[in-house]
């Protein structure tokens, strides 16, 4: 029944979308703007690059303007006359000194772009990352890959954390790297989008914001004392398995079975969810009568 219900909803929407096909087919190729002079010249040798570029966001934005290949690649006169593939700004260059100038080339247009305001002080610039390491200018807009996929090409250990059993749904596409980080730079550590870890986490986990009647000190100070933000082999992104994490601070206990590995078996502290089984309000408790126990 579920199968029928979902398809019943899905199919009409898909059929509606298919209506676009006719309009797409109706578009007159002849109506496409002719390549500006220099681009036509470039097209003689770089047909694939030019044709791909035509589908890109840049090309769409430049329709009607006089901007063309040389705005990014620089003056091509010497390049064309020599015909040796040199004397042109190539964004694929592996020359380290030339690479350092590539971002400046982009910034000739994007120097008033607000989200690049902190680029100069960001970690990516500091570590030699340049615009085209992440952005492919010639890729048609319809073929762009998700931002997180781009990030994980370099941040491979983060990708591995995201494969672990407890993780933020980044590989699943429900949360993106840029939800927490600004790859273009911020004044904060790890290019975070908030001045402290907690203030960042509270943006989504608003229920943890409190303020609670009873507060748990490490929770108030830094979520990362207990959690790995990207992923963990332990439940709930915890850095260390419960109850071991808790007892590192709460290091004295009383009663039989205090020590894990009691001959009668595991006890309340160390079975099931560990301490969190009973202390389920350990992020903060709004029950004044319960005191600092964080139970219930």
């Amino acid at each position: 029944m579920e199968f029928v219900r979902k398809w019943f909803l899905l199919l009409p929407m898909v059929l509606l979308l298919l209506c676009y096909c006719n309009f797409s087919a109706a578009a007159d190729p002849a109506a496409a703007p002719a390549l500006p002079g220099i681009a036509a010249k470039c097209n003689e040798c770089h047909e694939l690059a030019v044709s791909r570029f035509e589908g890109s966001h840049h090309a769409k934005a430049w329709v009607g303007s006089d901007r063309t290949c040389t705005n990014c690649h620089g003056n091509a006169d010497t390049h064309m006359s020599a015909g040796d593939g040199k004397n042109i700004i190539s964004f694929k260059t592996k020359d380290k000194e030339l690479r350092e100038g590539l971002a400046a080339q982009c910034l000739t247009c994007h120097n008033t772009t607000a989200h690049l305001a902190m680029w100069n002080i960001g970690d990516h610039k500091k570590n030699g990352v340049t615009c085209v390491d992440c952005h492919n200018i010639h890729v048609p807009a319809t073929q762009r890959i998700p931002t997180s996929e781009t990030c994980l090409k370099c941040h491979k250990q983060v990708e591995n954390d995201l494969r672990k059993q407890s993780h933020h749904p980044i590989l699943e596409g429900k949360v993106g790297c840029k939800d927490c980080h600004n790859p273009h730079g911020t004044t904060n550590k790890h290019q975070l989008k908030a001045p402290t870890t907690n203030l960042l986490c509270y943006k989504c986990h608003t229920n943890k914001r409190g303020p609670f009647k009873w507060e748990h000190p490490p929770v108030e100070e830094d979520c990362l004392i207990c959690h790995n933000a990207h992923g963990s082999r332990n439940d709930r992104l915890l850095k260390k398995k419960l109850p071991s994490l808790c007892i590192d601070c709460h290091a004295n206990r009383s009663g039989s079975g205090t020590v894990f590995g009691h001959e009668d078996g595991l006890n309340t502290y160390s079975a099931g969810r560990g301490c969190a089984g009973c202390h389920s309000k350990l992020h903060g408790d709004n029950n004044a009568a319960k005191g600092k126990t964080f139970v219930y």
Binding site: L17, Y20, F23, S24, A26, A27, A31, K60, P140, T142
Partner: peptide, 8 residues
């Protein structure tokens, strides 16, 4: 008559 792309 606009440029239209897409997928289903």
């Amino acid at each position: 008559a606009k440029e239209t792309f897409g997928f289903v």
